[in-house]
């Protein structure tokens, strides 16, 4: 078993076009580290020095991880992690 990570269109250049990839880890941070080892460059699109990037939404199953424990959120086999770029903008 592994954790399924669903990848948005704009990041599929890092996953050879795959819509979903598998990864391992016991926290979201470890999971992202594992993803980086298989798909170099992906981590930098998800996190910066301060944690999860502000305009990237990451969901564990049906919850936004910001409402769980951020990068420290525990993850387990059978979970699904979904990455969606925030849709945002505005006049300024």
């Amino acid at each position: 078993m592994a954790i399924e990570v669903r990848i948005p269109t704009i990041l599929r250049s890092y996953t050879d076009g795959a819509k979903a990839v598998n990864a391992k880890g016991s926290t979201l941070e470890e999971l992202i580290g594992d993803l980086e080892s298989r798909h170099p460059g992906l981590k930098d699109r998800l996190v910066d020095e301060s944690g999860l990037r502000r305009f990237v939404n990451v969901y564990l199953n049906d919850e936004d991880v910001r409402f769980l424990g951020g990068l420290g959120t525990p993850v387990a086999d059978g979970d699904t992690v979904t990455v969606l770029p925030a849709v945002a903008g505005g006049a300024r």
């Binding site: 969901y59 049906d62 936004d64 925030a86 945002a88 505005g90």
Partner: peptide, 18 residues
Amino acid sequence: ERSPTFYRFDSMEQFRVW
């Protein structure tokens, strides 16, 4: 954001819609 100069989809609504 409910703002005259910025918008952002609510993250949970975006998840459901996507």
